[in-house]
Amino acid sequence: MIDRKTRVTIIGISIKLVFGVCAFLGILTTIGIIFVLGNEGFQFFRQVPIWDFLTGTEWTPLLEPKSFGVLPLVVGTLQVTIGAGIIAMPLGLLCAVYLSVYAGKKRRNTLKPILEVLSGIPTIVYGFFALTFITPILQKIIPNTEIFNAASGAIVVAIMILPMIASLCDDAFRAIPRSVKDGAFAIGATTNEVVMGIMIPYSLSRILAAFILALSRAIGETMAVTLASGSNPQLTLSPLKSIQTMTAYIVQVSLGDTQAGGIEYLTCFAVGLLLFVMTFMMNLLGQIILTKFRVKSL
């Protein structure tokens, strides 16, 4: 028999242990991702030199003759990402400005949930929207637009990341102490002068971090671009042509019948590794900017 006190102590320790294991699972996940991508990626690079992979301009791993130059996928991805960024960054920032200085409390309380819904809509829905709504409009404006095209993907990804940018920038603006804004208003500045001259410079680091995190999300976006921009890995800069992003390629392979362990199967992991490295670097950069300048914005 053990007494109550010992029993309670044992319970306490086991609870802490269980909690700790759960928290450690997060680390394990990261290790798992790095190990899996690294291991399978290594298998791939034993067959295809990493330099050929990174600089090759032909991506035809599923056709003969096979070629493993990832640049078409990277360029396709960047086309969508940069396009989405060009649209969503200014719009998102303006949304945040409107939310934090112009919209009253009431309008703010309506707009916030709408933005939340917008960011919660599944990406597959956005893909459908791009394919059946945005692309037909693009085709009306510019007739030689292909059914699958980078522009449509960029627009729809912009819609997807806009709420994120708006919300993060809005948080940044709200973190500015009242006194800072009041000081500027007190010397007779107009609202836009306060926004441009005080608020944006003050929260620049957080805005920058928001942009980086949003772009990283755009890079990793899958279903919307798969549906909108197609699966034609050609090296082109024309936004009206069909392209393939890194994510779309992984989906394409997964939907097909590829043998585990084969070179086609391994390409997924090589592309996934590249994707992970790109987004990881950007997220890390975003985090560093956020923590490094946190002191300043307090």
Binding site: A23, F24, G26, I27, T29, T30, G32, I33, V36, L37, E40, L213, S216, R217, I219, G220, E221, T222, T247, I250, V251, S254, C268, F269, G272, L275, F276, T279, F280, M282, N283, L284, G286, Q287
Partner: peptide, 25 residues
């Protein structure tokens, strides 16, 4: 600190990468 930073980074990993992890593991 590592656990902390790690959680923030995990939230930013593209969902498709989780797919590759799930497939292998």
């Amino acid at each position: 600190k590592i656990i902390e930073v790690n959680m923030a980074n995990l939230a930013g990993v593209p969902s498709i990468v989780y797919g590759l992890l799930g497939l292998t593991v």
